[in-house]
């Protein structure tokens, strides 16, 4: 019943009977005329672009009558959205796709409840860092159909260029191994990331923990062989009690270093970095239908209690034979 493609009839039914333009989040409604819209009518990618809507009613009519396969709006705000010209600013966006999580515990071929939950945990971690470390607060999480979008609308970051955004991505996902050697007045000291309970080293420790708890013997990590993986799996429960020092000792410092390095480089794919650094990206419109899996792209009020299989399934799915 779930996660199957939507038929053209089901699409029409959804946009006529269930979808309501009023449910589009305020942050899009309020900037409607500054955004570019894009549509995919045939399921072959968003070829119908450069669309602009003067008001919500035009958008409502368009969606109802065209019942697109997929609908998108730009993360960018433009003076001339019809020409994608006069760029003003862009939301800072992170795309966590359950299908592309680098270390998946489920091993399914598409998406399933397990990896969607894993994606949700990752989103939790990212949002915590966006708030706690980066001090940003205008954050919206949207279920995209196959994962989650985190959309940040703080003015402090909306003018940032791609290079700044790429630095933010690296910070959030933990793709740089923090240095462990420090010096003070000529003396050298060793401080592993897990001994520093704040700032970037802590972010890194959290991401490492998440990854280590998800690995299995089939996981491919650069520089990490099956023997290391076996040892990791054997000792990883220590991390639940924050026993990192003992974990590292049991794995062996050299092998631990390889593990940390390998996971750091995999972390770069925790989010789709291309989406975050693209200043003119279009992103699935919340409330619209993901026709590939028959799920509604849904703005999430409470991430803790959100369950896509409860809160993002269109009615027609329940009417299927």
């Amino acid at each position: 019943m779930y996660l199957k493609p939507t038929s053209p009839n089901e699409r029409r039914q959804y946009y006529r009977e269930e979808w309501d333009v009023k449910n589009i989040p305020d942050y899009i409604r309020e900037s409607l005329i500054q955004r570019e819209f894009g549509f995919d009518h045939m399921g072959r990618g968003p070829n119908d672009r450069y669309r602009v809507f003067k008001n919500m009613d035009y958008l409502r009519k368009f969606m109802r009558y065209r019942a697109p396969f997929a609908a998108y709006s730009s993360v960018a705000f433009y003076h001339k959205p019809r020409r994608r010209d006069g760029w003003i600013k862009a939301e800072l966006v992170f795309d966590v796709d359950a299908k592309d999580i680098p270390i998946r515990s489920c091993g399914c071929s598409n998406v399933c409840e397990v990896c969607l939950n894993q994606a949700k945990d990752i989103v939790h971690g990212l949002v915590d860092t966006i708030k706690g470390d980066l001090g940003l607060s205008n954050i919206h999480v949207v279920y995209s159909g196959r994962g989650y979008h985190i959309r940040v609308l703080d003015d402090l970051v909306m003018g940032a260029d791609s290079d700044v955004r790429s630095q933010i991505v690296k910070y959030l996902v933990g793709s740089d191994v923090p240095r462990s050697e420090y010096s003070n007045q000529g003396m050298k000291y060793n401080l592993e990331h897990f001994t520093i309970p704040f700032a970037y080293p802590q972010v890194f420790t959290n991401r490492m923990k998440q990854a280590i708890l998800a690995v299995n013997l089939e996981t491919e990590i650069d520089g990490v062989n099956k023997n290391i993986l076996k040892a990791v799996i054997k000792h990883r429960d220590l991390l639940k009690d924050h026993q990192w020092g003992i974990f590292r000792k049991n794995i062996g410092p050299i092998r631990y270093h390889k593990l940390v390095k390998g996971i750091a480089s995999l972390n770069l794919t925790l989010v789709d970095a291309k989406v975050s650094i693209d200043l003119k990206r279009i992103l699935r419109l919340p409330t619209s239908l993901h026709s590939g899996v028959s799920m509604i792209s849904t703005e999430i009020k409470n991430l803790e209690t959100f369950d896509p299989f409860q809160d993002a399934v269109p009615k027609f799915v329940y009417e299927r034979d």
Partner: peptide, 28 residues
């Protein structure tokens, strides 16, 4: 000082965001 003060340095990669000690958006 909010970390976004260093936007230009971050953009030109003169410093890395991961090198800064941040808390609630502020550089410590």
């Amino acid at each position: 000082v909010h970390w976004t003060f260093f936007e230009e340095l971050l953009s030109s990669r003169k410093i890395r965001l991961t090198e800064l000690i941040l808390d609630q958006g502020e550089l410590i």
